[in-house]
Design a protein around this nucleic acid. Structure first.
Length: 955
RNA sequence: GCCCAGGUGGUGGAAUUGGUAGACACGUUGGACUUAAAAUCCAAUGGGCAUUGCGCCCGUGCGGGUUCAAGUCCCGCCCUGGGUACCA
């Protein structure tokens, strides 16, 4: 039979679906293995060749683990909420659900053609009420819990209320917003609203003011990447930064655990490093700077933190370098700092206000990135440096951000490069307080940059003079604690996650308002379904789209929340739902979670390194605190697959004409470069006739050819419609089959690296698969295998292959596995091997890569069950034993010839043999042997000196 | 700006722990088969010099360094990609 992939693939895809071959069930007799891909957002453009890269890799791994005897859970679902569908809805009026479901159908159809071993019975869609019910449920839990820093876990808010009723909040150590101290009696005397307001400061899901990009014309909040230079990307309307009431999740409560948890998981070190930097733990001190004139002694010694009456008379700063306090010569507040207005002197007001107006709307990224654009204004106010009593000026500048630390810094220009630039620019004194080891005190005005290192000794620093930096930091913290002007503390860069979106297409919050106080819906009311609206736009008064819904109130008539949840709500805990996707009583059962536990292998793009992967870990940790999940870390092993980039083709039109000039002679003309559809180009040669028909404007185009051909230029770019370089898998599968497609995607290169897509190479893989098929067939294309005993040589090839494949799969090097198959098939073909004993094992080896052809051959080999649950061949090292090793012999590190020697030959003997070898003489004569390095079964290197001495003598 | 990753022939890539740079493919060239094409098979293929005797020199983004030995380790730079908190 001819290799008919269309028929074979259709047949087996149907077989797998009908027999539910990949359905996963709890089976206590087998070890579990959970392989997951980050689920896709189903975009309107359908799947392109970049999407399946990770899915193919995870599918290969899943199939491999099944062969190794594991009970594999390998599900797939859809991240169904997203802006594109909403945008489309705004433009066309089509309900985003219709668009999304249509796209999902297309995705599934495309995915199924590739032959994935997904358990589709477990599919989840985030926009499905039966799924988002549990997101809403989790939100309620977050609302009803607070983080106890004493027990280091989330606890129910009722426990906190009890504590308030007995002791007030004096003993409470919580991850919370600023709360003033109160007693039990005070608490009891508060009314409902006041109590709720206090509790809001403790909840893990809480309402607070957050800075957002508000676009008044569009009446909505925009994402950072929808804003360009203070204008909306769509429409170019002005955007301002504005405080708005937003739901947030108190992820910062988990900062330390998120950091510590990284030690327990098997991720790339670089990825962990990114998360560490994102969490950004820094140890230091909080220091209070009072305003001039100096406050009374009493005020100074009042203990921190958070005394309302202290506010307005001191500025709190966080510093990682309290040792440099003596070198603090000015302070800088973020322009949006609430004290700025209070402290600015009348003569400065105009300039300061102008600056604030300008700085406020700049994006954070600009503010941090523009390191050489130094701006700021003096407020006219001074504060007192608490350690030496000196007056220092208070400035505002946009390089200080409100969102980090306290929104204010003490500036130490001698030892911080940003402060240094600022001081230079505005002529503020610079005092050196740290001297590098082995250097002398010098005049900072002669410096080119600050000295930021934590190495050295203190100078000009009162009581800490002469101390090493590390010791000085400790001493200073003690000192400021004694003085009551600060304390040692840890700060994190991580910020709480804003959880409100002013959009339609997202999960509604299970929240209603009574007298303006938010309350959660009763669990029995879940899911709170997304209501119908007449338009997907904000209301005229700027309220979110849900405000358009009729009767968007509870049964009692209380108004429901009109914000919806963000994209990461649905994607933070979806992997848990796959464990028990049809459970309508709970998020997932204890039984299912205890069995499947965590994800053994998680694959996805590295763009999720600090977004999804932090939120999901947080989500999981919270559920862990609630006792719902048994593993604190959800993703044991994680791999980032690279992106596939497009390879664009270009034609060169002579400017102002309809004449096109071939690539290598284009420089003789003045040309414009145009993207051309990659389907019209083969091996960089343009199909001129097809090009003329492509677009009407080219129908009478003329061409200047080289050697009778039109050669196109090319470039690697993002794959996108507008660049005409999108390749979808369907056409390729049609032409070469899914097995070839799967192998080719793996063959492209290492899974983790970004690589350009080029269909040229697929022919080679297709040739390979046909050659593989021919191994099992005679010259008339009839299936034929023999029962003869395999030769030593054949067994060696097979076992060499088994070994290499196992090693490579273990390190997720799928591309080299494909090469290994090619080498194996080439070698077996050369030997004209037809032995069933060899070919049957080879079928199993390849079945996780090319499952359709493997199933077909498996059947022809006489098996009556799917190859899915076959056993992976066992490697036997006896078959690949070698008696000799071919040593590369180098002289001074350069390989000159090869020498075959027995593997067990002692080093001494090799040494003797190699110097007396004929081939070696040429390199030895006239030189002196300095050293001979022999690494058994690796290399021989002979070091000779370069100087020619007496030939006679050397002989 | 900051954090992370990457840079090897004409192309995709291999070289797993510092030990033969370029496996395996694509492409190209030449050849076989064929009326022809497709398919298939064979050979050559990093650059340069030399050439029928082999051979020799250079070569992994750039500049230094460590080492018997560096694509791999260290220092400094250049370029590309991702993230930078509401794209997914």
């Amino acid at each position: 039979m001819e290799y008919n992939f269309n028929e074979i693939e259709k047949k087996w895809q149907q077989y797998w679906a009908e027999n539910k071959t990949y359905k996963a069930k709890i089976d206590y007799n087998k070890p579990k293995y959970y392989v997951l891909d980050m689920f896709p957002y189903p975009s309107g453009a359908g799947l392109h060749v970049g999407h399946p890269l990770g899915y193919i890799a995870s599918d290969i791994y899943s199939r491999y683990m099944r062969l190794k005897g594991y009970n594999v859970l390998h599900p797939m679902g859809f991240d169904a909420y997203g802006l594109p569908a909403e945008q489309y809805a705004i433009q066309t009026g089509t309900h985003p659900e219709i668009t999304t479901y249509k796209n999902i159908d297309r995705y599934k159809e495309q995915l199924n053609k590739i032959g994935f071993s997904f358990d589709w019975d477990r599919e989840v869609r985030t926009s499905d009420p039966s799924y988002y019910k549990w997101i809403q449920w989790t939100f309620i839990q977050l609302f009803e819990h607070w983080y106890n820093n004493n027990t280091n876990r989330a606890e129910h808010i009722n426990e906190l209320i009890k504590e308030f009723e007995t002791n007030g909040n004096k003993k409470v150590q919580a991850a919370c917003c600023e709360v003033r101290e109160f007693t039990a009696d005070e608490w009891k005397n508060l009314n409902e609203k006041e109590q709720q307001e206090i509790l809001m400061n403790y909840r893990l899901a809480y309402l607070s003011n957050a800075m957002v990009n508000w676009c008044p014309v569009l009446g909505t909040v925009l994402a950072n990447d929808e804003v360009q230079d203070c204008f909306s990307e769509r429409g170019g309307h002005p955007v301002e930064r504005r405080l708005m009431k937003q739901w947030s999740l108190r992820i910062t409560a988990y900062a330390q655990r998120l950091l510590d948890g990284l030690e327990k998981i098997n991720w790339f070190e670089s990825l962990k490093e990114m998360q560490r930097n994102w969490i950004g733990r820094s140890e230091g001190a909080l220091v209070r700077f009072h305003f001039s004139p100096t406050p009374s002694k009493e005020e100074k010694t009042t203990p921190l933190p958070f005394r309302e009456d202290l506010k307005g008379i001191c500025i709190e700063v966080f510093t990682t370098r309290p040792d440099t306090l003596w070198g603090a010569t000015f302070m800088v507040l973020a322009p949006e700092h609430e004290l700025v207005e209070k402290i600015t002197t009348p003569d400065r007001e105009e300039k300061v206000m102008e600056y604030i107006k300008w700085a406020k709307n700049r994006s954070e990224r600009e503010r941090i990135a523009e390191i050489n654009n130094i701006t700021g204004e003096f407020t006219g106010a001074y504060s007192i440096n608490p350690v030496n009593g000196k007056e220092i000026p208070i400035w505002i500048a946009d390089y200080v951000l409100m969102g980090y630390g306290t929104g204010a810094i003490m500036a130490v220009p001698a030892h911080d490069s940003r402060d240094f630039k600022f001081a230079r620019h505005f002529n503020i004194p610079i005092i050196q307080v740290v001297v590098k080891d082995g250097e002398e005190l010098s005049d900072p005005f002669s410096w080119e940059d600050s000295y930021d290192s934590k190495e050295g000794k203190m100078v000009n620093s009162g009581i800490i003079n002469g101390m090493e930096v590390k010791k000085a930091i400790k001493k200073t913290i003690n000192r400021i604690e004694e003085m009551g002007v600060g304390y040692g503390t840890v700060n994190y860069r991580l910020r709480d996650a804003i959880f409100s979106r002013q959009r339609y297409w997202g999960e509604p919050f299970p929240i209603y308002y009574k007298n303006g106080i938010p309350y959660t819906l009763d669990e029995s009311k879940l899911p709170l379904k997304l209501p119908e609206v007449d338009k997907y736009l904000p209301t005229e008064s700027g309220e979110p789209p849900l405000a358009r819904a009729k009767n968007w109130v509870t049964d009692e008539g209380y108004p429901l929340e009109t914000n919806t949840m963000p994209g990461f709500a649905g994607s933070s805990g979806y992997y848990l739902r796959y464990m028990d996707p049809h459970n309508d009583k709970e998020y997932f059962s204890k039984k299912a979670n205890n069995y499947w536990r965590d994800i053994d292998l998680y694959l996805g793009g590295d763009e999720h390194a600090t977004g999804h992967l932090i939120y999901a870990r947080f989500w999981n940790m919270f559920l862990y605190d609630l006792g719902l999940v048994c593993e604190e870390e959800p993703f044991k092993k994680l791999i980032n697959q690279g992106k596939i980039q497009g390879r664009s083709s270009f034609v060169y039109r002579i400017t102002g004409t309809n004449k096109f000039v071939s690539y290598n002679i284009r420089n003789n003309y003045k040309t414009n470069r145009l993207h051309v559809d990659i389907n019209l180009v083969d091996n960089d040669i343009l199909n001129i006739e097809a090009f003329k028909k492509w677009q009407p404007e080219f129908c009478d185009a003329e061409f200047i050819l080289e050697e009778g051909k039109y050669i196109c230029g090319w470039e690697i770019e993002k794959m996108s419609k507008s660049k005409h370089n999108v390749q979808n898998p369907d056409d390729l599968i049609e032409k070469y089959g899914a097995d070839t497609f799967r192998l080719y995607e793996m063959f492209l290169g290492p899974l983790e690296s970004h690589k350009p897509w080029d269909t040229k190479g697929i022919e080679g893989v297709f040739r390979f698969i046909k050659k593989f098929w021919r191994l099992y067939h005679d010259e008339q294309n009839n299936f034929y295998v023999s029962d003869e005993t395999p030769t030593k040589e054949e067994l060696k090839i097979l076992h060499k292959t088994i070994k290499k494949i196992q090693e490579d799969i273990k390190r997720f090097s799928f591309n080299t596995v494909v090469s290994t198959f090619m080498i194996c098939v080439n070698e077996l073909t050369d030997l004209k091997c037809t032995k069933k004993a060899i070919l049957e094992d080879l079928t199993v080896l390849i079945c996780s890569y090319a499952p359709h052809i493997a199933e077909e051959l498996w059947l022809l080999l006489g098996n009556n069950k799917s190859i899915t649950y076959a056993t992976f061949p066992v490697f036997n090292k006896e078959y690949i034993k070698e008696n000799t090793f071919i040593y590369p012999v180098s002289f001074n590190g350069k390989m000159r010839f090869k020498l075959e020697l027995p593997v067990d030959m002692p080093v001494k003997e090799i040494e003797k043999l190699v110097v007396s070898d004929d081939q070696a003489q040429k390199w030895i004569i006239g030189k002196q042997i300095r050293k001979i390095i022999i690494v058994p079964k690796k290399i021989i290197n002979i070091v000779v000196n370069q100087i020619v001495v007496n030939n006679q003598f050397l002989k």
